[in-house]
Nucleic acid binder design. Sequence first.
RNA 1: CGGGAAGUGGCUCAGCUUGGUAGAGCACUACGCUUGGGACGUAGGGGUCGCAGGUUCAAAUCCUGUCUUCCCGACCA
Length: 478
Amino acid sequence: MSDIKNKEITSRDVDFAKWYTDVVKAAKLATYSKTKGCIIFEPNGYAIWEKMQSILDSKFKETNHQNVYLPLLMPEELLKKESDLIQGFAPEVAWVTQGGDKQLDERLAIRPTSETLFSDYYASTINSYRDLPKLYNQWCSVLRWEKETRPFLRSREFLWQEGHTIHETEKEAMEETLRILNIYNDFFHEYLAIPSIIGKKTEKEKFAGAISTYTVESLMYNGIALQSATSHYFGQKFSLAYGIKFLGRNNTYEYAYQTSWGASSRMIGALIMVHSDDYGLVLPPKIAPVQVIIIPIKDTIEVMEKAKYYQNILNQHNIKTIIDNTDKSAGYKFSQAEVNGIPIRIEIGPRDLANHNITLVRRDTREKENVNINDIDIVDKINNLLEDIQTSLYNKAKIRRDEMTYEARSLEELKNIMENHPGFVKAMWCGNPLCEEKIKEIKGTKSRCIPFTSEKISDHCICCGKKAEHEVIWAMQY
RNA sequence: CGGGAAGUGGCUCAGCUUGGUAGAGCACUACGCUUGGGACGUAGGGGUCGCAGGUUCAAAUCCUGUCUUCCCGACCA
């Protein structure tokens, strides 16, 4: 194992922001485009997104959701119907005002989110309680006129899925909201190996137009939080604004209960900032587009045959395996495999063959292991190793998150933590928005969520000292 | 949107102070030789110096404007 770090990558502990963009570039996940604030998803980055899509999509379908596609553009009148929503989004909506060389009579909004289109669509198609629920999802991109942009974390156009459902009862809609939240949370834990936390947003932080917002929050390597997915309960707010009514069981008109939920390409950013290191990208095996790369050392016939043999076996067992048969030097290929975050590398060279060996290298720890091919079942061996990488990435991230989770009993204490070693800070809050506002004055500190699994740290609000019921997790955020 | 920094072959940058018509390393192409932690040799291709205007006999260099990117804040997935 060599200690020579990747030349193109700034050290994570020296300059985290630079490190992040260096990894994005070195692993060829994305590059800047001529369009301000919009990135090009390169094959390596898009492949991760496709993998995320396929996993989440099958989970949505298992829970009876269907995919649809609604237009990119919406008339202004439609967007304005729900006043909280338009107020929340007004500063970041982009408008189409001209078609060809003709000025439009009514300008069209480019969707920043599609509650309005879904609501209008539902209003026109729902007649009876028998039509409910409607469980729709769409994969698309949305546009928000962001001022400060960063690859994956915040760009003007980003990829996401937005689910929009309507239900007969409040209970069903609330169950849906939480069902999806749990799907997201499981996805983070099981696939992304990110120990996320779920909870409810405060009134101040909830989605514009929602009754309540639930969130998946994760903590990055540098102690900054990332809102990673959200699920909203709308009650009847949009139903009333858009007239989504149906004839109920007792033959009177009722307004539907609604939810929406989304997860975006921002998750790629989370993946980078939780697991990757100074050698480049580190991907959990379950989300990696490629699990194994075989590097032949010397392209002799024997070596190449062996490489292809293993590639075939592994691919047949659904372990995506590629061979790097470029004529670069071996050392270059090793580094490249590391930058790209491929979980396992198999080195096969004449020396290995002579001893009936192959060399296995895991990306997360960079440990090398020589195994005798007569002693092992290669598929079992690789599967075990992949599983071990997956769990150890999760455990490592969890230990780090726990180490960076603090408790504060006074504003002073909270401030000290944020200034010296940011992370999740648990503190009691009375529920008064004024107190929340005051806490926000501490350099970028915001409430992340009221966690579902709450501890009672003390009886008093950290800010005003009044009686407090809720523990809130506070953090600086992306 | 405030404060700072930077834009020169694909990438990282030098040249700018003191104007004279563009360089290095890496990458790329061909051939050869190689491959166990970012090899080597030979030959080759590629840049209206972000863009626009101005000053000047002459601008990568000076001036003005503008765009983009990065960092730090405010605002947001």
